[in-house]
Amino acid sequence: MIELKNINYTYGGGTTQQIHALKDVSLQIPDGQFIGLIGHTGSGKSTLIQHLNGLVKATSGDILYNGQSIYAEGFSMKGLRSKVGLVFQYPEHQLFETDVFTDVCFGPKNLGLDAEEIRARAREALDLVGLDESYDKVSPFELSGGQKRRVAIAGVLAMKPDVLILDEPTAGLDPKGRDEILDQVAKLHRERGITVVLVSHSMEDVAKYVDRIIVMNHGQVAFDGVPKEVFRHYQELETMGLAAPQVTYIVQALRAKGFPIGEDITTVEEAKAAILQVVGGKR
């Protein structure tokens, strides 16, 4: 469980360009949740996730990891970073080893584990992202964009984190590559019970996968709830430079014309079922 208490973060202090990036943010991230973090560029979402593993230190406020303040004297930041894994945007830019397997070994090696454990973890992490032994000796630079990204994610998984934070893991990927990554993340969450925080611009993706959405706007939490609750505020989301999934607008347009359909629909499957219930179709 990660707990943020009244986090403020300012930078450029003392200059005319001072920016208050996070304003009094309080949040709880219980174990095992799958959270979507959304907000337009500059809303503070990237700054927020960098606080979660101590890469950025809050100007004021406190962060508790399993009840312990990460800012307390003697708290092991190294330990925290092995438990809260952060996958940056375009993580494939951080691949550097000569082959896939060695690259994934880099993290666990730095944890000071023995050689056998390192190899076991690297193999397991690669299996988790769907890359079998045939990729072990391939240079990471010969892989496709989606595959490279999976190697980078495996590098973080090999640290066996309890919390996995992904900053726009699908940016620049084609639709199939996007589905592959997100399906694998969802599977990890389901089978391993790890906590996932997914930063995304795509409302369609968020609606399909997560159990909770946190919306950031101007450095503050604007909405926090299950997708249905949050997307009910689609008009406010638009004023924040965001939008609900397209299917939400379809449902609203149908309702406006008097078609009897409930408003809490956020996925294509739900819309299909609801429409068929009204107009039939073959069973």
Binding site: D174, P175, K176, G177, E204, P245, Q246, V247, I250, V268, A271, K272, I275, L276, V279, G280, G281, K282
Partner: peptide, 20 residues
């Protein structure tokens, strides 16, 4: 071809498959 259609097209296609 590893591509996607907009949600409205997808929904229409799904409903058509179901007989509408």
């Amino acid at each position: 071809y590893r591509l996607d259609v907009p949600q409205v097209t997808e929904l229409a296609w799904e409903l058509k498959k179901a007989g509408l």
